[in-house]
Simulated assay, not measured.
Amino acid sequence: MGRAELESNVDTIKATGQSMIAATLESIYEMNGSRIWLDRVDGEAELRVERLHLNGITIDDLYLPARIRFEVDVATTLGMAWTTGGVMDCISVPGKPVHATMGSVWAPCEPNSGYYGRAENLSVRAVNISVAAIRAVAGIPEGESNPFRLLSLVSEQSNLTFAWARRVQYVQTILRGGPPRTDLVADTLHRDLISGALSVLPNTYAHAIPHREVHGYVGSRTMDRALGYLREHVAEPVRLSDLAVAVGISGRSLQYAFARRYGVSPMTYLSMMRMEHAHSDLVTAQAGDGTTVALVGARWGWSKPSHFAAAYLRRYHVRPSETLRAAKRNLTYQDFLLDSSLRNFYNMGFER
C-alpha cells in the first residue's frame, strides 16, 4: 500500500508505494486530475521532498529513484524547475515539448494547463508560484485583462539559467536557517524570487519594477502598435528601424521594452511568431497538397532550409520533416510528439 510521512511542519515529505507516491505528488503540487504510473522501481522507491515556504511560494528539493509516466490535466501554479539529476520528457497541452536534463531550467506547462510524459530518476529543485503573486509583483492592476503566458518553456540563455539557480539556492540557504526575522526581509526575498522567475523564461509580463519609475518606459498602447505591426508584416522582411518608425519611438527604447516585457528582443519575438506560423503550416499539411519543409521555411523568412530545420529543432525538439510526415499520415500532433519524445528518451540509453 505504501506510506507517507510529513515531518517538521511539512518541511520534509516522504512517500513509498505507487499509490501513495501518486497521491502525495498530486496533493503537494495541486495537480488536478493527475495520473502517475511507476514503470520501474529501484528497490523500494521513496519519494523525498524537502519543502520551504516563503509568503505563499514553495521551494522543493524532490528526488524519486524510479521511472515514471504521468498525465496532469491541470497545474494551477507556475512551476519553475531546475533539474539536478535524471531526465524528463514531457509535452504540455497543446503540444509544447520539454526535454530536461541536468542543469536545465524549465516549466512543464503554463499555469492552468496540463502536460504528460515520462521521467527517469528525477531530481529537481522546483519553485511553485501562484498567478496572483506573479501579477502583483509584475504590477498588473487587479481586474486588468492581461493573461500570463510563457513564450518558451525552457531557458536557452545560460547566464539567466545560472543566475536563477544561484538565486534559488540563496533563498533556500536563508530559509533553512529559520523564517525571515522581519516582514521586510520576507517581502524582499519573495519579490526577488518572482522577478527572477519572470526573467529566466520569456513571458508576457514585465519584471517586478514599478512601470512609472523606470526611465524610458514604453506604454501598453505603444507596445500594442508594435505587436500589431509585427503581426501585419510577419511574412515580410522587417528591420528594427522599420518597427521603430512605425510606432514612433527609438530602436533602443523598443529593445528595452521588449526585453522588459517579453524577455527577448523585437526581432527574436518576430522570429518566434514566424516559427509558430511555420509550425502551424506543417501540422495542418495534407497528403498531396505540395507542402515541403523548404517551402514552409521560405514562406516565413528562412532562405536556407538547413537554417529553418535547425531553428525548428531547437524550438520543438523534433525535425520539421518529422512533423510534416506525421501530418500527412493524419497522425495527431500530440500523439506524434509523445512518440517522438519517448523514442528520444529511450535512445539516450534507457532500456524498456
Rank of each mutant, 00 (worst) to 15 (best):
Leu230Pro: 14
Glu110Ser: 10
Ser303Asn: 06
Gly219Lys: 09
Arg40Asp: 00
Leu78Cys: 07
Asn32Val: 14
Pro141Ser: 08
Pro65Trp: 11
Glu232Gly: 09
Asn146Ile: 05
Arg35Cys: 09
Met272Tyr: 09
Pro111Trp: 04
Asn55Ala: 11
Met273Glu: 12
Ala287Tyr: 03
Val87Ile: 11
His233Gly: 06
Ala278Lys: 12
Gly219Thr: 04
Ser303Trp: 00
Gly177Thr: 13
Ala327Phe: 01
Val87Asn: 00
Ala235Val: 05
Arg176Ser: 11
Val185Met: 15
Ser340Arg: 15
Leu282Gly: 00
Gln157Lys: 12
Ser92Pro: 03
Arg125Ala: 02
Val218Met: 07
Phe148Lys: 00
Ile209Cys: 04
Gly349His: 07
Ile13Pro: 10
Asp61Tyr: 00
Glu46Pro: 05
Tyr229Gly: 13
Pro141Val: 06
His307Lys: 04
Leu324Gly: 05
Gly2Leu: 05
Glu30Met: 06
Leu313His: 13
Ile13Gly: 09
Ser158Thr: 13
Tyr29Gly: 08
Ile21Phe: 01
Ala309Cys: 07
Lys304Val: 10
Val98Arg: 03
Arg135His: 12
Phe336Cys: 04
Ser241Glu: 14
Ala138Asp: 04
Pro97His: 06
Gly139Tyr: 09
His277Pro: 00
Ser340Pro: 05
Asp192Ala: 03
Ser145His: 11
Gly349Glu: 02
Arg315Glu: 08
Val238Tyr: 05
Val245Met: 03
Tyr269Asp: 01
Thr222Pro: 07
Glu26Ser: 13
Arg319Ala: 12
Val124Phe: 00
Val10Tyr: 15
Ala246Arg: 06
Asn146Met: 03
Phe308Leu: 02
Gly43Trp: 05
Ala246Asn: 02
Arg69Tyr: 00
Asp192Gln: 10
Phe258Met: 10
Arg314Val: 10
Leu52Gln: 10
Thr173Met: 06
His53Met: 05
Gly85Glu: 11
Gln157Ile: 14
Arg315Gln: 09
Met80Asn: 04
Cys90Thr: 08
Glu7Tyr: 07
Val72Ile: 14
Arg343Tyr: 06
Val245Gln: 06
Leu6Asp: 10
Ile13Thr: 07
Gly56Ala: 02
Ala244Pro: 08
Val185Phe: 03
Gly103Gln: 04
Thr291His: 09
Thr182Gln: 04
Phe345Trp: 11
Leu78Arg: 08
Tyr333Asn: 12
Asn159Arg: 13
Ala326Pro: 05
Glu46Thr: 14
Gly297Cys: 12
Gly103Arg: 07
Ser250His: 04
Thr332Gln: 07
Asn344Glu: 13
Ser340His: 13
Ile249Val: 13
Lys14Arg: 15
Pro179Tyr: 08
Asp39Phe: 11
Ile174Thr: 14
Ala197Phe: 04
Val74Thr: 14
Arg231Met: 12
Asp281Met: 12
Met275Thr: 02
Glu46Asn: 07
Glu351Cys: 00
Val200Glu: 13
Asp339His: 10
Met267Trp: 01
Pro94Trp: 05
Val105Ile: 15
Ala100Arg: 03
Asn55Thr: 07
His190Leu: 01
Leu6Lys: 10
Glu46Lys: 12
Gly216Gln: 03
Thr84Asn: 09
Leu198Pro: 06
Val247Ser: 03
Ala294His: 02
